[in-house]
Amino acid sequence: MEPVPETAQVLRSLNETSERDLASMIDTLAERVVAIVPSCVGLSISLIDSGLTFTLVATSEQVAALDAVQYVAAGPCVESAASGDEIQLDDVLDERRWQHFARAAAAQDVRSTLSLPLVVRRGEVAGAVNLYAADPQAFVGVEAELRQAVGGGQGLGVSNADLPFRTRDVARTATRTLDELDVVEQAVGFVMAEQRVGADEARRRLTDAADRAGVDVPSAARALMARR
């Protein structure tokens, strides 16, 4: 599993100020997780900054887009990052609490997820490590091993002040084709109806979610509208 390009850029920025090579640590973390859960298809690390959840690293654009869906419509990664609770979905097809996320995950052939609280300096819970697997119940019975492999994120050694989120290139939020414009407008209409907001606010929420996840708006919109 390799970080998406935007993630790699953020990691390089972090490495300029961090004492440890965060990119290498992410690679090591991914290897540990796959050794325990072979059907794990991706992971992301989400952190809290100024009361909002952002994706620091994702191993694919599809995984980052699933994070973006949660930033619009809620989901386990946001809940775990905010509450510090461990949240496991054994089968997204049976999920009722976060149905929008569950449908988006199923469309990406993700059947189960596990979000583990991320602990940084001074024992503060500042986010979550989010694991996505292709098989249902992929994480059942190996939770303890995964907690040990992740180590509560303590080895990451970063704090909120280290995160250069606002240096991300906003140009990737622009649509490029008529097809992309169409799916974005569908997603905006969906957010308007679901969250009872106007068009401008719905578009702002979708764009904000995409930026926080490190993907472009069409990718976030496609994930949100999957199987609808």
Rank of each mutant, 00 (worst) to 15 (best):
T177V: 02
V129A: 01
V125A: 14
V197R: 08
F54D: 07
T207I: 03
A226E: 09
R227Y: 12
T59M: 15
A107Q: 06
R172N: 05
G84Q: 09
A23L: 13
M192W: 00
A126I: 13
E2M: 08
A202S: 13
D200K: 09
A73K: 04
P76D: 07
P164C: 08
G75I: 02
G75S: 06
V69D: 10
E180F: 01
T113V: 11
A126N: 14
T7G: 14
V158D: 02
L22P: 01
G153V: 02
E31S: 13
A213F: 05
D94L: 13
A23R: 13
D200M: 09
S46R: 09
R212I: 05
D21I: 14
L66K: 08
T53V: 15
I26L: 14
A74D: 15
A58I: 01
S60K: 01
D67Y: 02
F101R: 04
A187V: 07
A174P: 08
A226K: 10
T207L: 02
G51K: 09
A134S: 13
Q186E: 15
E201P: 05
V78S: 04
E201L: 06
S46L: 13
S13Y: 07
V197F: 01
V217M: 09
A171F: 01
G198Y: 00
G127S: 09
L118S: 11
V188I: 14
M225A: 08
P164L: 12
Q195G: 00
R212L: 03
E16I: 04
A149I: 02
C40R: 03
R203W: 03
A174G: 11
V120H: 14
V92E: 06
V37A: 06
A220P: 10
P3A: 13
A138E: 04
D91Q: 08
V140W: 05
A106G: 09
A106S: 13
R20K: 14
V110S: 06
G153D: 00
Q99S: 14
S219D: 14
P3S: 09
A221N: 04
D179Y: 07
T177G: 07
Q137F: 12
R121D: 12
L89V: 15
E95S: 12
Q195L: 07
Q154G: 08
